[in-house]
Amino acid sequence: MKEESTTRRGFLKGMAGMTAAVAASPALMASGNPEKENFYGYDEKVVGLASKIKSAGSIDFNYPDNDSPCKAVMVNGQIKAYSLLCTHKGCPIVYNADKRAFRCPCHFSEFDAELDGQMIIGQATENIPEILVRVDGDKIIAYGVNGLIYGRESNLKG
């Protein structure tokens, strides 16, 4: 396990030496290159076009399966994508493009789209899971999920 993952999510920090990490987590393994983690078991999926995000501001898609709504947005010239299921009790969170943040209408948790989904305020115990995407030409390709999606025992269910 790397000291720090590419995504800098707090809970991945400082995990060096936690040997159980890999064993308990078959799907997530560090590849050795801190810039690129391999999320085993996840299928790569084209989820939209970069040009569309540039014009529309965001695109909705499902990943890793159809029960998991997600949104890709453009922040600071970068495409970032997140699960839309609130990590508190699973309500669909709503994107505020001006604030570049998501807000949950159920109990008002807010997540920062510019900071890996950090909870700005709210009642979730986890930041919002980030969908890892890369851009290939105009294609946006999802290749993994960082963080457990609400309502699942595994992101890759079944």
Binding site: T125, K157, G158
Partner: peptide, 29 residues
Amino acid sequence: PKRNALGVDFTQQQPALSGVWASEQMVNT
């Protein structure tokens, strides 16, 4: 996922609000 003490079928996505779920902070060793 199908048979556990929570009595929840985790092969199905849990619904919002009424769903039973544990986040990573809700488990430990």
